[in-house]
């Protein structure tokens, strides 16, 4: 079997595979005839099908309201009778596709990825073989790869990276679709529903080198809300970057919504904030006291908010608004 012939047969097999996906009876008959024409046909088709099978079962299109239709793809599917195996597989595959979607083309050739995750209120330190160090705040998930020692994905949550600078191999952090490249440094990354935030304590980083290419130096922070909104760069106290690691949260003109989210992450408590005051600016430092009542009492004093405890965690409200 020459390589050319193999390629030619593969091409034929693909055309058949696509044709029978929505095939009529005549297509199946023609496919049978093709298979019978040469034993190599079945062999090449089997290989193609085995590769294709890795992507999981083809989705059955949602059944439209009466009359029920689309039986062709529904052939081997009988959801009530056999959900567990396929369902689990599909979820696993969906997860992989999401992760892979973040990676871009050149980053991961051969998957050897693993995840590190923390529960709310829990922190964790990862020492990489490269000597680089990553500290995870609570409620944080990172994806790392054994084959790529200078690479991390912040799936969600917050982490501080203390990495050596190597000109030939920058440390790359992905947060969603955003890419952060170090130029030798200590920096903090937060990824949440509100977007991506990066703050630099030492050295510098480049944010999205292929696109906006924002360079941040020590004492600068960046807030990328995502979508069409602009990236904003602000000043931070370098010593306060990643200060959650020493049990302190430090802010300069930060919206209260962010403070509440950080508190929840750092303490593991549920923290709700009256949405009407979410944009109000806060400047100050909050110590993460192990005594939660004292912590929220201090917070209350700092922010002039009322902190009350309920079954659903801590609720922060503005007493002046309530009385009106």
């Amino acid at each position: 079997m020459t390589a050319d012939r193999e390629q030619d047969l593969l091409g034929q097999a693909i055309r058949w595979h696509v044709r029978i996906a929505d095939g009529a009876e005549a297509d199946w008959e023609a496919f049978t005839a093709w298979l019978e024409a040469d034993p190599d046909h079945a062999r090449v088709y089997d290989q193609l099908e085995a590769g294709d099978a890795l992507l999981g079962d083809r989705t059955v299109p949602p059944v439209t309201p009466a009359p029920p239709v689309t039986p062709v793809q529904a052939g081997n599917d009988n959801p009530p009778a056999r959900p567990p195996r396929w369902w689990i597989q599909r979820v696993a595959i969906a997860a992989v596709l999401v992760i892979a979607g973040f990676l871009g083309l050149s980053v991961l050739q051969r998957g050897n990825a693993y995840q590190v995750a923390t529960a709310p209120g829990q922190t964790h330190v990862v020492m990489l073989e490269s000597g680089d160090r990553i500290e995870l705040n609570g409620s944080t998930t990172l994806t790392l790869d054994h084959n790529l020692p200078r690479f991390a994905i912040v799936e969600h949550g917050e982490a501080t990276f203390t990495v050596q600078h190597r000109p030939d191999a920058p440390f790359i952090v992905l947060a969603g679709d955003e890419r952060i490249e170090d130029i030798g440094t200590v920096f903090n990354v937060v990824r949440s529903d509100a977007g991506v935030r990066v703050a630099v304590a030492e050295g510098s980083v480049i944010y999205n080198p292929g696109a906006e290419a924002v360079k941040l130096v020590a004492g600068e922070a960046l807030n990328d809300p995502g979508g069409a909104q602009d990236i904003a760069v602000s000043q931070v106290e370098p010593a306060m970057v990643g200060s959650w690691r020493v049990g302190r949260l430090s802010y300069r003109d930060a919206p209260l919504s962010r403070v509440a989210a950080d508190l929840a992450r750092a303490t593991g408590e549920r923290v709700s904030l009256d949405p009407a005051i979410g944009d109000r600016a806060f400047t100050g430092t909050i110590a993460i006291d192990a005594d939660r009542s004292r912590l929220f009492a201090d917070l209350s004093a700092l922010t002039n908010l009322r902190a009350s405890r309920s079954e659903n965690g801590w609720i922060l409200t503005d007493p002046n608004r309530e009385t009106r």
């Binding site: 095939g23 297509d27 099978a53 529904a74």
Partner: peptide, 23 residues
């Protein structure tokens, strides 16, 4: 359930069963 093209449908079921079996 109503099947629009029952003959093609039976081919498809056979095809899928074969794949399951090989796995």
């Amino acid at each position: 359930r109503r099947v629009d093209e029952p003959r093609a449908y039976l081919y498809r079921m056979t095809h899928n069963l074969l794949l399951d079996r090989r796995r």
